[in-house]
């Protein structure tokens, strides 16, 4: 079966007074049916921008350029707004990071759920109400009838995020994009919401793009991972492979930052950090964006844009240094 989503060379730019900010640079990937693809990276790496660009939700000053954006084989990059709106909320849906502000404060939960269904289906209000009720049950909200009559401010953050998930699932989309869905929640609620997402993804047979900065979440949820840094994909591959043999020094650095229980016997073990800061994305980035923070940097890194290399069949990375050399060092320092 063909891919649910294929993205080719996405670029997002913001014209600023100080120059052009290159928020997303030449990002390409595909999402297969029923898979969870994680996009991981630190704040400002362009992972949320990529998600918003796919959903056509970028800020009005943002410039989106994309060579191709295919949804189930159909190019939707240049679809008129009206037609795109038929897909959005129906075949592809999104869950946002901020459950506290993502619901409209002046309408009931029920109204906001039913609205999506009424928009995309030839359904009566009664159908929509039944559908909303069953989805609230599915996302584990007790007393759904009562909740539907309530307003967002009467619900906790965890419940609101469950409502957002129910809303995204109203039309059983083929693709769901979850942009840091648990970042704003309590740690105990986080695990519940992630488990819920994973269960529903399997039950509804959806593909999911999960955006996160948390490698723990990636390990638990994702089939494949894209690692983004400074607006571009620096490494991509199956989750297992990325965790076992990370081939880009940035990915290696991220993994070193993960606390490990096995290190507890070594009382002097310190949590890894990546020295330095992310480069400014205003103006053209020359060479490898990670060069200034990279322990393996050589002169050639700063010369030209680094091309993508293949480490294995499904595993590619954007680095000049062969992974054999960087990996040995990673394995030593990470243990």
């Amino acid at each position: 079966m063909s891919a649910v989503l294929e993205l080719e060379r996405l670029n997002v730019r913001f014209p600023l007074t100080s120059g052009v900010l290159h928020a997303v640079r030449d990002v390409s990937f595909r999402v297969e049916p029923r898979e969870i693809l994680a996009i991981v990276g630190e704040s400002g790496c362009g992972k949320s921008m990529t998600a918003l660009a796919i959903m056509n939700l970028l800020h009005r000053r943002a410039e989106r350029r994309v060579e191709a954006l295919r949804f189930r084989g159909e190019d939707i990059a240049r679809l008129p707004q009206r037609k795109f709106n038929r897909l959005r909320g129906d075949r592809m849906a999104m869950i946002f990071q901020e459950p506290m502000t993502s619901l409209n404060p002046v309408y009931t939960i029920g109204d906001q759920l039913e609205e999506v269904f009424l928009r995309h289906r030839a359904a009566t209000r009664e159908d929509a109400r039944r559908r909303a009720r069953s989805l609230l049950e599915k996302v584990g909200i007790p007393a759904p009838d009562q909740r539907m009559r309530q307003y967002p401010h009467q619900l906790s953050g965890g419940l609101r995020q469950r409502v957002m998930i129910a809303m995204a699932l109203m039309c059983e989309p083929d693709l769901i994009i979850a942009d840091e869905p648990t970042t704003a929640l309590d740690v105990t609620i986080q695990a519940q919401v992630l488990a819920l997402l994973k269960r529903l993804q399997a039950e509804f047979e959806m593909a999911m793009i999960l955006i996160t900065h948390d490698l723990g979440v990636v390990a638990r949820m994702a089939d494949r991972v894209l690692v983004m840094y400074a607006g571009e994909i620096v490494e991509s591959g199956p989750t297992r492979r990325i965790f076992d043999s990370p081939s880009h020094p940035y990915t290696q650095g991220l993994l070193r930052c993960l606390p490990q229980l096995s290190a507890a016997d070594d009382a002097d073990a310190r949590l890894g950090t990546i020295a330095g800061v992310v480069p400014s994305l205003v103006g053209e980035v020359r060479g490898c964006a990670f060069a200034n923070r990279c322990p393996h940097v050589v002169d050639a890194c700063r010369a030209d844009r680094v091309a993508v290399a293949a480490a294995a069949a499904e595993h590619s990375y954007r680095c000049l240094i062969p992974p054999e050399r960087t990996l040995a060092n990673f394995r030593e320092t990470a243990r």
Partner: peptide, 24 residues
């Protein structure tokens, strides 16, 4: 954020402006 949600739901421009934004 709630207008962004409304857009993500594929609602019409009229509904976004007059139902979701204007009442607030």
């Amino acid at each position: 954020d709630f207008v962004r949600t409304a857009r993500a739901k594929g609602l019409s421009q009229t509904s976004i402006l007059f139902k979701h934004a204007l009442r607030n």
